[in-house]
Design a protein around this nucleic acid. Structure first.
Lengths: 266, 266
DNA sequence: TTGACTGGTTCATTAAATGAACCAATGGCT
DNA sequence: AGCCATTGGTTCATTTAATGAACCAGTCAA
């Protein structure tokens, strides 16, 4: 394995659950040699990917990440464009909006925006990324992808331990069909109790689902009508977001969306 | 040099000026071997620090940076605390506010917030980071640091080509003295034409300046009164921000700030 | 056709990463 | 006091992984 990948694995250890790790912690988590780990940690600290508390000697994620992420947000046109749309959507919805893109069989954050009014802390990768069929975003993606994708997705080995999710294939298939009909996916308290979300897929130029946009909101605040309102906003913005990514929404999906958000607006 | 550092240097090549680089571009910029560079680029792409446009084959900064930066923003208490203060300040000022911290002789972004009303795109590292004495933030830092810091700062070799800034030591010393007296530093069109800013230092627990907070605004929008208003906001929030970093403002500086922003409020 | 570009690959050489053993300091606990 | 288990960090002989000159293949313009 390349040293770069090894060093990166160290960065991945820092999660919401354990944001500060000492040398020994890292050693326990990786079961690698202490000397090597120490050198890697120092190297990462030198370049600002980690920083070390001079008192406790513990490491945490460093400021360079902020800088580079900002650079990406400014310069990568894809993100730049999505950003304006997502910011607007976030203001309108008053909730956390995030766009993720498929990378292998994981959905990784492209950009997210949270309206200031009521901060909902939604943390993603506590211990690895959840499987596609466990999140609204993932289901939105699968529902608008060829069936073969689901088969593949189910076969991919995962670090994430599903919290009581024996993926029942037929039930899942039914749910995905329902999502394809109503235009958006939903989840309640599945990823994190108290957090619900609605999600739609975003499409590339070939009308293939390659990304997702989701709105997360506290379950307590989201009745059926609230959920439908948010889903309506999502579907109304769906075309613009796909276009921001350089893609386009398939005709049949656009028809479903148009019908649904017009209904929601009434 | 460690492989980690080498790979990191590649990431540093991606700037606002040139956000997308092909293999050959990278080779020209680094004068390193193509094979090695290619392997590094691929490794960085695998972990999502870069991403490659499948059509143009060019690389740009990747989505993992966004994810990790978000993780840091959420989990590192220092950032978390600064965040709330900076967000508030940004809303009040209606301008871009950013907090940077000293790292070697560079100021690196800890957190920044931009009020949505009028977006000012202020890009920092076009070709390396500017020297301390060329920015409001840097001058704010130097003015409240022992004189030896300035001597050191002037001696540090820099990649940044100063755009007509032969650092005249006595003039600089005079300016820094003036800053120390009035409580904040200012710059007009120095870093980027059309952009002005005001800045104050932030102090650690030992009353040593270790960071800065600056407000950037379009020169066109900033008359003398506007500048003083922003500087007043900055000085009023200075104590809270230093405390958010776990530090404290020296008595004499606090006195200057208190006197000045009370004057500005009248 | 040629030549100058791309991005990407091979494989012998070499330099850098590795890890067992070792320090030094800290913090309980008898 | 002494002791044992921690902690973060370092050394240096060994080995593994990084390196780079040369090489492919594709693209574009002259």
């Amino acid at each position: 394995m390349s040293t770069i990948a090894k060093a990166f694995e160290l960065l991945e250890l820092f999660t919401d659950a354990r944001p500060r790790l000492g040398l020994s912690d890292v050693q326990r988590l990786t079961a690698r040699d202490k000397a090597t780990l120490h050198r890697h940690l120092v190297a990462l600290e030198k370049i600002g990917f980690l920083e070390q508390d001079s008192e406790t000697r513990a490491y945490c994620l460093g400021p360079t990440l902020t800088r580079l992420a900002g650079m990406r947000a400014r310069t990568v046109p894809e993100v730049e464009m999505v950003r304006t749309v997502v910011d607007a959507l976030s203001r309108e919805a008053g909730e956390l909006v995030h766009v993720s893109r498929l990378r292998g069989f994981d959905l990784v954050d492209v950009y997210h925006a949270e309206h200031h009014s009521h901060p909902v802390r939604v943390s993603f990768d506590a211990y690895g990324l959840p499987p596609l069929f466990a999140t609204a975003s993932g289901k939105a993606f699968l529902a608008f992808s060829p069936a073969s994708k689901l088969i593949e997705a189910l076969d991919v080995p995962r670090t994430w331990v599903t919290p009581e999710n024996p993926p029942d294939k037929t039930a899942l298939r039914d749910e995905l069909d329902a999502i394809a009909r109503c235009g958006y996916a939903r989840s309640r308290d599945t990823l994190r109790t108290g957090v619900s979300s609605v999600a739609i897929p975003l499409f590339d130029a070939n009308h293939v689902a390659v990304a997702t946009c989701a709105i997360a909101f506290p379950t307590a605040r989201g009745g059926v009508d609230a959920e439908q309102r948010l889903a309506g906003l999502l579907m109304a913005a769906g075309a613009e977001m796909s276009r921001a990514l350089g893609g386009d929404v398939p005709r049949n999906v656009q028809d479903i969306w148009t019908a649904n958000y017009e209904k929601a607006a009434l």
